[in-house]
Write a protein that binds this DNA or RNA. Structure first.
Ligand SMILES: [Zn+2]
Ligand SMILES: [Zn+2]
Ligand SMILES: [Zn+2]
Ligand SMILES: [Zn+2]
Lengths: 130, 130
DNA sequence: GCTCTGTTGATAATGATTGTCAAAACCATT
DNA sequence: AATGGTTTTGACAATCATTATCAACAGAGC
């Protein structure tokens, strides 16, 4: 049976309090900053659990780190992410969903999944960089 | 000045000889198997160079490994990849390109790049799995 | 061939992530 | 509220891919 621990709630809460995608290490640091004594391994485990349960989205940063985010919906969607400040916009794109399914089917592929992420500089960061 | 070494040619050749995406470590093993004494660090460097020069495509596997492939074109395109045998199909999708650019622009993002990959089971692997 | 300089490769170092396992915490039951 | 079986935790070690070091080496031009 799965148990409820304050650690899991703490991770869930910290994820909710964070706007963009965040790494396990960064989330652990954030928790420590608030005085939480939670262990790093526990943060990794909690995030992995949240991801499989669908309560968190995860993606690989271009540098290969696993990042997590508590999105507003657990429905399938994608993200537009600022590579400077982490600002994240959730985007739906039925056209892309259809395209992914079609291209897989047309090539005889089954059990198709897809990775679709857009990275850029948000308006604020664009202005600052000017 | 950039120099021509047999090591870079060996990496380029090994990439060409490989069908799907492959990791630096696996490519190093493949080269060793043919008797090449090339060093692992050199394979990493050569692949990184090929990627920036546009002679190789790279992507992050769902597990976070960097994979490389010598594609038939150096024009921008995407991939449909069998997660079992590695069979890779190059796909172009102007609609997706446009969508990515539009969604970034509509949200005030600049310097937009995107990651679009489709993973599935190819027809052969689907048949075997049945 | 000689020198200058970019490249190589054995190895150490790094950094994220996972494994270990005894101690602590849950929770249904008494 | 105390008990007991089971799950979870966390400090730490271990792993794994990748990068940094740096002395030895090998292109390219003279
Ligand atoms: Zn930003
Ligand atoms: Zn989708
Ligand atoms: Zn296959
Ligand atoms: Zn594209």
């Amino acid at each position: 049976m799965k148990r409820n621990t304050w650690q899991r709630e703490a991770v869930r809460g910290a994820l909710d309090a964070n706007d963009g995608f965040i790494s396990a290490q960064a989330l652990h640091s954030a928790l420590h900053a608030t005085g939480s004594p939670i262990g790093l391994a526990t943060v990794y485990r909690a995030l992995a659990d949240l991801a499989v349960e669908g309560d968190a989205d995860s993606l690989q940063s271009p540098e290969g780190e696993s990042l997590y985010r508590a999105c507003s919906t657990n429905l399938h969607h994608h993200h537009l992410i600022c590579r400077n400040c982490g600002l994240t916009v959730e985007i739906e794109a039925d056209a892309v969903e259809r395209w992914a399914k079609d291209v897989a089917g047309q090539n005889g592929f089954t059990q198709a999944a897809h990775v679709v992420d857009v990275f850029g500089l948000c308006a604020t960061c664009t202005a600052k960089a000017a």
